[in-house]
Computed example of a mutant assay.
Amino acid sequence: MRTITNLLGSLLLLLCATGFVHAQETATRTPDVPYVPTRQVVVDAMLKLAKVTKDDVVYDLGCGDGRIVITAAKEYGATGTGIDINPERIKEANANAQKANVTDKVKFVEGDLFETDFSKATVVTLYLLPTVNMKLRPILLEQLKPGSRIVSHSFDMGDWKPDQTINVDGSTIYFWTVPAKKK
């Protein structure tokens, strides 16, 4: 009996330690970009450029304080998901969604952009760095349905020519439509 108790105790300790190490690995991964909030005038222009409607599912990759998906829900009636690796940003985004009374339309997920399924999105917004955009580009093209829209604040996607580029209050915004899949 004592051997079984010791074995179960050891197994429980091992499981707890494994969970703790995994939690530490997730929490200590360095974000790919620094947190710099998108100004509201740029958020508004990004959503307008993407022609967001109540039928859209907006995903903001690197959502920060959640302002893009919150605005999409509040102003257009869209649903949305914000993804960020920083747990503090997720807490802040959830608090902001609650203040804006849109918790029924938006959710925020702590996660790694490169390990997240965002195939349900009809609109994807980005304010990342060029290297991150380029790393995400094949994932976006693989996961998103043709006709889905991508809007990026400040940074393009290399040789993928945007459908439209606009300047708003000193910021450049790029817009692409996901093309039909090649057979």
Rank of each mutant, 00 (worst) to 15 (best):
M1T: 02
I4N: 15
I4P: 04
N6M: 03
N6A: 11
L8C: 03
L11E: 02
L14F: 15
C16S: 13
G19A: 04
E25N: 03
T26N: 12
T30Y: 10
V42Y: 04
V43T: 15
K51P: 02
V52R: 01
G64N: 06
G64R: 05
D65W: 05
D65V: 14
I70Q: 04
K74I: 07
E75W: 08
Y76H: 03
Y76A: 07
A78V: 10
T81A: 03
I83S: 02
R89V: 11
R89E: 03
K91H: 10
Q98M: 12
T103R: 02
D104V: 08
V106I: 11
F108R: 06
G111Q: 00
G111S: 01
G111F: 01
F114W: 11
E115A: 14
S119K: 00
K120R: 08
V124G: 01
L126P: 12
L129Q: 10
P130W: 04
T131K: 15
K135I: 04
L136R: 00
I139F: 06
L140Y: 09
E142G: 04
G147I: 13
G147K: 09
S148R: 01
R149L: 04
V151D: 09
H153K: 12
M157V: 14
D159G: 13
Y174N: 03
A180W: 06
A180Q: 14
K182D: 11
K182N: 13
